[in-house]
Design a protein around this nucleic acid. Structure first.
Lengths: 106, 106
DNA sequence: ATATTATATAAACATATGGTTATATACTAA
DNA sequence: TTAGTATATAACCATATGTTTATATAATAT
């Protein structure tokens, strides 16, 4: 692959928040406000991280009425599956979101 | 894996020069001055990139008299092989080094 | 239309990063 | 020991990055 494209990919992954987002999206697609809720960060911050991931083609978005749902893309990277599998399991966080009714608002 | 360790790994890979170094080391171990020669960069710059790669445990070093040879490590990462395979082939650069006698000096 | 909710973007700022130059350290050779 | 070669480290600087606050845009609901 092209080094420039690969560099952009690894830059996108070179941040703890963004790895957290990828780890969460491994379980299921999530909208911005759900990520804000789970990661306890401000909405603009999450949005900008998502933009980077999108620019690197690691995630894709899908609009559903007022919400925009993000999910893993990464089709263009032959190694993406192996990398995602190394990410920690986040099912607990997802569970907590559902328990707290956070899933309802979206 | 731990997110902090993974973040450090991807940070280490999030630079074109360092991806170049990894791509080169895929072929064979190289010393600092050979990398300087191939990549046309200053010695301190290469040394600092190597330090980052070493701290992230992506490369290891071996001293042989006055030279320090670097090679791929990455044992701790389950995905490292898949990632290295996505790097471009650098055999031409290695060939050029050998042809130019650059391999002799080290 | 207006208010509300979800998301994106912009501006400002502090910190991180990568390159350069200068210098220190480690080993070799004489 | 002294000189030479290979590598590492430090100091400095310019640029990149991540966060925050404020504001803009888009869709929904009344």
């Amino acid at each position: 692959m092209e080094l420039d494209q690969l560099t952009e990919c690894y830059k996108a992954m070179a941040d703890k928040t963004r790895l957290n987002i990828l780890a969460l999206l491994r379980h299921e697609e999530l909208c911005v406000c759900e990520l804000v809720e789970i990661l306890k960060m401000t909405q603009p911050s999450i949005s900008q991280h998502l933009r980077k991931l999108k620019q690197a083609k690691l995630v894709k978005e899908r609009r559903n009425s007022q919400w925009i749902f993000y999910s893993i893309d990464g089709e263009i990277y032959p190694f993406i599956k192996a990398n995602l599998e190394a990410l920690p399991d986040m099912s607990e966080k997802i569970e907590q979101l559902k328990q707290s009714g956070g899933k309802v608002c979206c």
